[in-house]
Structure formats: structure tokens, C-alpha cells
Nucleic acid binder design. Structure first.
Length: 151
DNA sequence: ATTCTCACA
DNA sequence: TGTGAGTA
């Protein structure tokens, strides 16, 4: 993963063109906490990593038949404090730790990411990357998950 | 020219 | 989900 891949350079119109997803849908995904584009001057900008995640998200939603809540659960399986290796003190009083129903980037001011910086946070990058990798594995080895154990 | 939010079908 | 109004 290149540093350039996390640079938010694509405006929403380009992303819509590249992915075939309506700008309206992209904005709704953001409202639902499924994506977290950068914001500059009120405008959304997406990175290469965002593009990969958005395509994965589209697969989960439209091919796999998950609903937005289901995808959110996937994003929440790894606690943010585990990804960030937060100290007990950091965890104390962190709003994201207390609210297990929402990804930390949906929360106003979580631990390390100051306002508007969630797009660059390792938690967002790591969680989306994990789901992408899991889907890749599922694609290569469809039986790896849920296959019965041999007697 | 492009994106923003909000409202509406 | 997509479109149109009115902005910025």
C-alpha cells in the first residue's frame, strides 16, 4: 500500500463515473457511516483506497445482499482501540469506545483523529482493508468460510 | 463547471 | 434511487 493511495484526490463526480455509482448513493453511504471521504472546502474528495473500498462496498450491498447495517457490523468487528493500541487511559472517556454501534469516524471527536481528520485515521484504513481482504479470500476460497470440518 | 443540501416523486 | 431547485 502506497502513501499515494491514501491521498484524497478524486471529487465525487469522478468517483461516480469510475464506479458507476450515483453521487446520491455515495452521499448516502457517507451518511450511513459506510464511507468517510475527506472534506476540503465543503467538498468531498476520495482516495485510491476509498475507491477500492467503495467497490467492495458495492459488492457487499448489491451482489452479496447485505444491508447497510450488516456492512456496518463488518466494519465494527475489530475495536478501534485495538487497532490503535490505545492505552487504558486513552480508552477512558473516549466516546468511540462507549458506543459500539457506530464506527469511530461517525463520532464527533474520537481519540486521535481531530475533526475532519477521520479520513486519514488508521482505524478507517485498517477496517476497510480488512473487509476487502476478507472478501478477496472469500472470492478465492469460497469454502474456507463455513466449510464443515472433516471427521 | 461542479458540488452542496434539501425536498419530492 | 434519481432528479431538480437554489447555493456556494
Amino acid at each position: 500500500m502506497d502513501k499515494a493511495d491514501s491521498k484524497a484526490v478524486y471529487p465525487i463526480g469522478i468517483v461516480a463515473e469510475l464506479t458507476g455509482i450515483h453521487p446520491r448513493s455515495l452521499r448516502i453511504y457517507e451518511q450511513q457511516g459506510l464511507i468517510c471521504p475527506a472534506r476540503r472546502g465543503g467538498k468531498r474528495f476520495f482516495s485510491e483506497n476509498d475507491l477500492r473500498w467503495i467497490e467492495c462496498l458495492n459488492f457487499l450491498l448489491n451482489e452479496k445482499g447485505l444491508d447497510p447495517g450488516g456492512v456496518k457490523e463488518l466494519l465494527l468487528v475489530t475495536p478501534c482501540w485495538l487497532i490503535r493500541d490505545c492505552s487504558e487511559e486513552e480508552r477512558r472517556g473516549c466516546p468511540a469506545v462507549l458506543d459500539l454501534k457506530a464506527p469511530c469516524w461517525e463520532i464527533n471527536s474520537c481519540c486521535g483523529s481531530r475533526e475532519g481528520k477521520c479520513h486519514e485515521c488508521t482505524v478507517y484504513a485498517e477496517r476497510t482493508r480488512q473487509v476487502i481482504e476478507a472478501m478477496k479470500r472469500l472470492d478465492e476460497e469460497p469454502r474456507a468460510v463455513g466449510a464443515p470440518l472433516k471427521p
